[in-house]
Design a protein around this nucleic acid. Sequence first.
DNA 1: TCATTTTATTGAACATTGTTCAATAAATCA
DNA 2: TGATTTATTGAACAATGTTCAATAAAATGA
Lengths: 216, 216
Amino acid sequence: MALKKMVELKLKERDARRRLILHAARELFAKKDFRSVTVREIAKAAGVSIGTIYNYYENLTDLFLDVFLKSAEEIEQILNKENLSAAPSLSRFCELYIAYLNDNMTFYQMMGHFMLVGYLPPDATDKLNHVMRMLMDRIEERINAQGMHNHARLSAHALFSALNGIMISYARYPGRTPDQIKRHTLRLAEIVAQTFASGSKIKKTKSNRLKKEVVS
Amino acid sequence: MALKKMVELKLKERDARRRLILHAARELFAKKDFRSVTVREIAKAAGVSIGTIYNYYENLTDLFLDVFLKSAEEIEQILNKENLSAAPSLSRFCELYIAYLNDNMTFYQMMGHFMLVGYLPPDATDKLNHVMRMLMDRIEERINAQGMHNHARLSAHALFSALNGIMISYARYPGRTPDQIKRHTLRLAEIVAQTFASGSKIKKTKSNRLKKEVVS
DNA sequence: TCATTTTATTGAACATTGTTCAATAAATCA
DNA sequence: TGATTTATTGAACAATGTTCAATAAAATGA
């Protein structure tokens, strides 16, 4: 149908325009803390007016989220690609994740921002959770593949937390170059991965057995 | 000397006034995300005018930092008290820390905020680092006490990261009450503590030996 | 092809923010 | 008490995110 094609083309065009704004925003966010980038800056960088931004995004949070999701897609692809060629070890997985965060500060800055913020609109919460869950699932796969079955889901939670915490805690270590920070965080990730790999077969004794409870 | 006493009294009074503002701010921050609290709200809550706030604090960041440091003192006292009565296990230490973060969301929200932000004035960076280092030192003590000497400092970094990451990753888990979140994060902390306790005696093989490098 | 309707773009205008500072009040001093 | 120093105040300012009437562009239908 010609009509359907027209409509499709129309949507494609609209999407292309939105990607233009998205792209400009991403570049700005890479240069400085995304929270200090203004709508006016983004508009200028994208070569459109302020109003146009609001034609494609309800508000700034919406634009932030779109950038965040774009990154999430990227990292998912990176992890998937590695998964195909050769199932990566837990260490390798952690390395990939931390390396990506180092090279895409905006992503974990946004993750931290959204996780720390008090209120988020429901749909934003949903999208955020979807990303978190995707990453968690990937970790759990690796943990299971490593042959550690003692509360794998909980361990995945803990390991995921640890990786995020590494970036939060050390990404802006004072007096370090980005390269030094990358090395340090990668090392910490390696430690965490090894620790989890070797320490995950905890014997269930009376003292350290975990109470049964629905977790996730 | 009378003069000296006068000056001292003066300073005390000034300090009392600053604490008034600090207290009002803390209470507001506890009710909602501190970043959404305005100077006008704080002024009203403290019963002073906007200008007075700026007489006691250079800017909002300064006030945020003061609230942050106040919390840091609190947690330091909690950890010290426990240390005196009976040196806590690694698990117990993690429990104390995570419990405090649960009961003082503002603290870790601020920690996250400051760690994620692009630029901080040098003195703010110094104060922030002092707090981070204090917490890290406490962890390292516990790790050493637990008798795990394989790169203790690095392990302390990793464990500290993990604890912070737990809060970042799960403090706003959707559809959970604060109580459920507290239970879940405490459980994760327990897992992390056990994992580190049992996994820290990694054999140094060719494949997993860490490159020697100055770290901290 | 051209009038009409629909859609997209624009940026001035608005409300709200953190911050400043001249005017005022209070406290201190000699 | 009168002079001087210090603290408080809130109107005013610049910058922010967001809105929306006016305008331009595109699509439609004859």
